[in-house]
Amino acid sequence: MERAIQNPPPGFDELTVNEQIEYVQALWERIAAREDDVPVPEWHRAELDRRLAEYEAAPDAGRSWEEVEADLRASLAMRR
């Protein structure tokens, strides 16, 4: 039997946006802590398999996070 969930919980709308974000993050952390209980749709699994196969076929095709981050920071610096 499913429970009816009140959306949003009482008092949520009185929180600041930052507090609402913190609340939602805390909820997600509680859910993610039980990772074996979190359902993973089949299409997510298929996409992960596809990406892994793509990486294994050409492991040097991408760029490192450090390279991407440096480009993003340079691009943002030019906008300022």
Score class of each variant (00 low, 15 high):
Asp37His: 04
Ala58Ser: 11
Glu69Leu: 14
Glu54Phe: 04
Pro39His: 08
Ile21Leu: 15
Trp28Leu: 13
Leu52Tyr: 08
Asn18Pro: 08
Asn7Ile: 14
Arg30Ala: 07
Asp60Glu: 14
Leu72Thr: 00
Glu29Pro: 00
Leu76Arg: 15
Arg79Lys: 13
Ala74Met: 03
Leu72Trp: 10
Asp13Trp: 02
Glu14Arg: 13
Arg51Asp: 09
Ala26His: 12
Ile21Asp: 07
Glu54Tyr: 02
Ala4His: 04
Ser64Phe: 05
Phe12Gly: 10
Glu22Ile: 10
Arg34Thr: 03
Leu72Gly: 09
Pro39Thr: 04
Arg79Val: 12
Glu69His: 05
Ala74Gly: 08
Glu67Cys: 05
Asp13Val: 01
Arg45Val: 15
Trp43Cys: 11
Asp60Cys: 01
Ala26Ser: 14
Leu15Asn: 04
Trp28Phe: 12
Met78Gly: 05
Glu35Asn: 09
Ala61Asp: 11
Ala4Trp: 02
Glu29Tyr: 02
Pro59Tyr: 10
Trp43His: 12
Gln25Asn: 13
His44Met: 09
Glu42Gly: 06
Ala26Tyr: 03
Gln6Cys: 05
Leu76Pro: 00
Ala53Gly: 08
Asp36Ile: 00
Ile5Arg: 09
Pro9Ile: 03
Glu69Asp: 11
His44Asp: 12
Ala26Asp: 14
Gly11Leu: 05
Glu42Asp: 15
Glu22Val: 06
Ala61Val: 02
Ala74Val: 01
Glu69Lys: 12
Leu52Arg: 15
Ala70Tyr: 02
Met78Ile: 02
Ala53Lys: 14
Glu2Gln: 07
Leu48His: 11
Val40Asn: 03
Ala26Lys: 15
Thr16Lys: 04
Asp13Leu: 13
Arg51Leu: 15
Trp28Gln: 14
Ala58Gly: 01
Glu67Pro: 02
Arg79Trp: 06
Val24Phe: 04
Ala26Val: 01
Arg30Leu: 08
Glu67Tyr: 01
Tyr55Asn: 08
Ala32Cys: 07
Leu76Phe: 06
Leu76Ile: 06
Leu72Gln: 07
Tyr55Pro: 05
Glu54Thr: 13
Tyr23Met: 12
Arg80Met: 08
Val40Tyr: 03
Ala4Ser: 03
Ala26Cys: 03
Trp28Gly: 07
Glu19Gln: 15
Glu56Pro: 00
Gln25Thr: 11
Leu76Tyr: 08
Ala61Ile: 01
Ala74Arg: 15
Asp13Ile: 01
Glu56Val: 06
Asn18Gln: 12
Pro39Ser: 05
Glu29Cys: 01
Arg3His: 07
Ala4Glu: 08
Glu29Gln: 14
Arg50Pro: 06
Asp60Leu: 11
Pro8Glu: 02
Pro8Asp: 03
Pro10Ser: 05
Asp37Tyr: 02
Arg63Phe: 03
Tyr23Glu: 04
Ser64Ala: 12
Leu76Trp: 08
Gln20Lys: 15
Ala53Leu: 10
Val68Arg: 09
Val68Ser: 02
Gln6Val: 12
Trp28Asn: 10
Trp28Thr: 08
Ala53Thr: 07
Ala26Thr: 14
Met1Asp: 10
Arg79Ala: 13
Glu29His: 08
Arg80Asp: 07
Arg63Thr: 11
Ala32Asn: 10
Pro59Arg: 09
